[in-house]
Design a protein around this nucleic acid. Structure first.
Lengths: 254, 254
DNA sequence: CGTCGATATTCCATATCGGAAACAACGATG
DNA sequence: CATCGTTGTTTCCGATATGGAATATCGACG
């Protein structure tokens, strides 16, 4: 089953927005404020964005009703006037950028999924028995079986001889494996790691983990296919989702 | 100037969706498929969601045109027929859940922002001079000055005596500091860390870093206010956003 | 005091969304 | 074998939101 290559054609995306007292500030609002800042006027912004002036102006008013002054408007003068952003508007832009940057990271990064039953639980922290051993992850309280998602930028690699002692770090998950492939970018390298299977747990998952590391790390650690490596993941960066009846899905590259 | 308590009333949010060959599968689509699964029929789902049948059915058709068969339909019979989800639809639901879980993680986690000029660059990897020393982060290529955001779930803590050698791990950023506060949840603990200031860099930032760790780690490492600690962050988990002219914003709890 | 460029406002065309109603399919039932 | 009940399918119409053309208003500058 699942003969359709859904993974291939599917594209993760998102619409971030900030909700402030009734209004939602989304991408187009931010784009609009930026254009106003650049052009120095509402009408100029409308031209630049090829939007109608009335709508744009109304949108500014609507935003200001909930948020407060965003655009300082001036009328008259040799140049007819103009507008500039208030400090509040600038802060809004910064906030939005940070939000996007954070989400963007999620969308651009590979994820590995390991699934299995919850064998122990302490509040929102669950111990999950997977094909590669026990994994500690944040998971919803009502899940008996979860799929644990691990972002590749949360995976750290260590030389087998240099693995920090468990007592000395806050990193709770540790996996031994062998590097199976490298995908080298300009400064960042994706590393495919074939994990050692554990005796317990289901065998359903492809035991592959993807790590995102710097090229510098690749050189320092001497990473290359066939090499043994230890991967570690913070429990708080491993997120489980309830999966009581749905079947497992394995590694997902995007 | 910036007198408005924007942070207080602002709420991060997002609309995740999957783009598949022209159509976008969003929350309501997923909700619809779930309802069809639960009710065993399109009409039942329409009732349950209090949506009109025609729209719901048309939406199913529209999705299927781009994605492929999602709903197996049967007409006639004692019970008049019914519908069930295909394997493709089930996979879609799992995919969406994972996407939401990943984004959800971003929204729920604290972020620390450190800003400063880019002093070195290798592709998308930049070295940023901050008030607490040089930070290696992923940053847009055209930024001369960036704000680096660090998610609290990407921060690992180590006892000062157990810090792994730089040659042995892929973790490139390291900060020494003192624990200033602990916020203990049921299983997860937020740790506030006052970082040691560096001689270089701007002094604009509040040099505080927030880490999210398990309670177990708190016990094992003996974390408590006043204690010296070493925090480490993978370069690939530190994301910079361009900030050439906008002013810095410091720590942001949500 | 007229001018000019920008801000505010009014009003209308259009696309989109949502729902009511009629229609078709199909197996069980008598 | 006609009837019935439930569900899937289609058609059509009204409400709502969206976008834009035209117009009125403002105010420092020369």
């Amino acid at each position: 089953m699942s003969g359709a290559p859904l993974t291939e054609i599917m594209e993760k995306a998102f619409d971030p927005y900030l909700r402030i007292d009734d209004v939602t500030v989304d991408r187009s609002d931010v784009e609009m404020l930026r254009a106003i800042d650049d052009c120095g006027s509402l009408s100029g912004a409308a031209d630049a964005l090829e939007r109608s002036y009335p709508r744009l102006q109304q949108r500014v008013v609507a935003l200001e009703e909930s948020i407060g002054p965003l655009v300082e408007r001036t009328r008259g003068g040799a140049d007819g006037g103009g507008s500039s952003l208030t400090e509040t508007a600038r802060e809004l832009l910064v906030r939005f950028d940070r939000l996007v940057a954070a989400y963007e990271g999620v969308a651009r990064v590979d994820e590995t999924a390991l699934s299995g039953p919850v064998v122990d639980r302490d509040g929102e922290l669950a111990t999950v028995e997977t094909s590669v051993g026990a994994v500690l992850a944040v998971a919803p309280a009502d899940a008996a079986r979860v799929a644990v998602t691990i972002r590749s930028d949360a995976v750290s690699l260590h030389a087998p001889s240099e693995v920090p002692r468990a007592e000395g770090t806050s990193v709770r998950n540790r996996f031994s494996g062998t590097i199976s492939w490298l995908d080298t970018g300009d400064a960042v390298v994706r590393v495919g790691i074939e994990l050692e299977r554990d005796t317990n747990g289901d065998g359903a998952d492809s035991p592959e983990l993807v790590a995102l590391v710097t090229r510098k790390s690749v050189e320092t650690l001497g990473l290359e296919p066939g090499r043994s490596i230890v991967a570690s993941v913070k429990a708080t960066a491993a997120r489980g989702i309830a999966q009581d009846e749905l079947d497992a899905v394995s590694t997902d590259a995007n």
